[in-house]
Lab assay of single mutants.
Amino acid sequence: SLEEAIRRAEEALRKGQTFEYAGIRVTTQEALEKFRKWAEKQK
């Protein structure tokens, strides 16, 4: 689910890792916010 993907992205960010979902790379807090906004639109 998208909620699960967001949780995994947050977890990866805390560990300093890269999270990738549907071709979207989350490597920074800013990218995480963009990913969250994108995920909201997918619902």
Score class of each variant (00 low, 15 high):
Lys37Trp: 10
Phe19Asp: 00
Glu40His: 08
Ala22His: 13
Ala22Thr: 04
Leu13Asp: 00
Tyr21Leu: 06
Leu13Lys: 01
Thr28Cys: 00
Ile24Leu: 09
Ile6Cys: 04
Glu11Asn: 07
Arg36Lys: 15
Ala5Ile: 15
Ala5Gln: 10
Arg14Cys: 07
Lys34Thr: 11
Ala31Arg: 04
Arg7Asp: 07
Leu13Cys: 04
Arg36Asp: 01
Thr18Met: 12
Thr28Trp: 04
Ala39Gly: 05
Ser1Thr: 13
Gln42Met: 13
Lys41Asp: 15
Gly16Ser: 04
Lys41Ile: 13
Ala5Leu: 15
Phe19Lys: 00
Thr18Asn: 10
Leu32Thr: 00
Trp38Lys: 01
Glu33Trp: 04
Ser1Trp: 15
Arg25Lys: 14
Lys37Phe: 09
Gln29Thr: 11
Lys41Gln: 15
Trp38Ile: 02
Ala39His: 04
Glu30Gln: 10
Gln17Ala: 09
Ile24Met: 11
Ala39Tyr: 08
Ile6Ser: 02
Val26Glu: 00
Glu40Gln: 09
Glu20Tyr: 09
Leu13Asn: 02
Ala5Asp: 03
Gly16Thr: 02
Glu33Leu: 08
Arg25Asp: 06
Gln29Val: 13
Gln17Lys: 09
Gln17Glu: 15
Tyr21Asn: 02
Ala31Tyr: 04
Ser1Pro: 12
Phe35Gln: 00
Trp38Gln: 03
Glu30Ile: 08
Leu2Gln: 03
Gly16Arg: 02
Glu30Phe: 06
Ile6Glu: 02
Ala31Gln: 15
Thr27Gly: 11
Phe19Ser: 01
Ile6Pro: 01
Thr18Ser: 12
Glu40Met: 08
Glu20Pro: 00
Phe35Val: 02
Phe19Gly: 01
Lys34Asn: 12
Arg8Val: 07
Gly23Pro: 01
Glu10Met: 07
Lys34Leu: 14
Lys37Asp: 14
Phe35Ala: 01
Ile6Gln: 03
Glu20Ala: 05
Ala9Thr: 01
Leu32Asn: 00
Lys37Ile: 13
Ala5Met: 14
Arg7Val: 10
Lys37Ala: 15
Glu4Ile: 08
Phe35Asp: 00
Thr27Ala: 14
Thr28Tyr: 02
Ser1Met: 12
Val26Leu: 09
Ile6Trp: 05
Ala12Phe: 07
Tyr21Ser: 02
Glu4Lys: 06
Gln17Tyr: 11
Arg36Pro: 00
Arg36Phe: 08
Ile6Val: 14
Thr18Gly: 08
Arg8Asp: 13
Gln17Met: 12
Phe19His: 02
Glu4Ser: 09
Gln29Arg: 11
Lys37Ser: 11
Arg14Ile: 11
Phe19Asn: 00
Leu32Val: 03
Ile6Leu: 13
Ala39Asp: 01
Phe19Met: 03
Gly16Ala: 04
Glu20Thr: 09
Gln29His: 12
Glu4Cys: 05
Arg36Gln: 08
Arg36Asn: 03
Glu3Thr: 10
Tyr21Arg: 00
Glu33Gly: 05
Trp38Ala: 02
Glu10Arg: 04
Arg7Tyr: 11
Val26Ala: 02
Glu3Cys: 05
Thr28Phe: 03
Glu10Tyr: 07
Ile24Pro: 00
Lys34Trp: 15
Leu32Asp: 00
Glu30Trp: 07
Arg25Val: 15
Lys15Val: 11
Thr27Met: 09
Lys15His: 12
Thr27Val: 08
Val26Asn: 01
Leu32Tyr: 07
Glu33Ala: 10
Gly23Glu: 04
Glu11Ser: 07
Trp38Val: 02
Gln29Phe: 14
Gln29Tyr: 15
Lys15Asn: 15
Arg36Gly: 02
Gln17Cys: 04
Ala22Arg: 09
Ser1Ala: 13
Lys43Phe: 14
Lys34Met: 14
Val26Phe: 07
Glu10Val: 08
Ala9Arg: 00
Arg7Ser: 11
Val26Tyr: 08
Lys34Ala: 15
Gln17Phe: 11
Thr18Gln: 11
Glu4Pro: 02
Gln42Ser: 07
Gln17Gly: 11
Ala39Ser: 05
Arg25Met: 14
Thr28Met: 03
Ala5Val: 14
Arg14Thr: 11
Phe35Cys: 02
Lys41Leu: 15
Arg8Thr: 09
Thr28Asn: 14
Glu10Asp: 06
Glu3Arg: 09
Lys34Ile: 13
Leu13Trp: 05
Ala31Trp: 06
Ala39Val: 15
Glu40Ser: 07
Gln42Gly: 07
Glu40Cys: 04
Val26Asp: 01
Thr28Ser: 13
Ala31Val: 06
Leu13Arg: 02
Lys37Pro: 01
Val26Arg: 00
Gly23Gln: 04
Arg14His: 09
Glu4Asp: 13
Lys15Ala: 14
Ser1Asn: 13
Val26Ile: 15
Gln42Trp: 08
Glu10Gln: 07
Trp38Arg: 01
Glu11Val: 07
Ile24Thr: 04
Phe35Tyr: 03
Arg8Met: 14
Glu20Leu: 07
Ala22Asn: 13
Gly16Val: 02
Ala9Val: 03
Leu13Glu: 01
Lys15Arg: 13
Glu33Lys: 07
Lys43Glu: 12
Glu30Met: 08
Gly16Met: 03
Arg25Gln: 13
Glu11Cys: 04
Thr28Ala: 03
Gly16Tyr: 03
Thr27His: 11
Lys15Gln: 14
Ile24Arg: 05
Arg25Leu: 15
Glu3His: 09
Ala22Pro: 02
Lys41Tyr: 12
Arg8Gln: 14
Thr27Lys: 07
Arg25His: 13
Leu13Met: 07
Ala22Leu: 12
Thr27Leu: 06
Glu3Lys: 09
Ile24Asp: 01
Glu30Ala: 12
Lys34Glu: 15
Glu11Asp: 11
Arg8Pro: 00
Thr27Asn: 13
Ser1Phe: 14
Lys37Glu: 15
Gly23Met: 03
Arg7Lys: 13
Leu13Thr: 03
Thr28Gly: 06
Arg14Glu: 12
Lys41Gly: 15
Arg25Phe: 14
Gly16Phe: 05
Glu3Pro: 06
Ala12Pro: 00
Lys37Met: 12
Thr27Glu: 15
Leu13Val: 13
Lys41Glu: 15
Lys34Asp: 13
Thr28Val: 03
Gly23Ala: 04
Leu2Ala: 05
Tyr21Val: 05
Phe35Asn: 00
Glu3Phe: 08
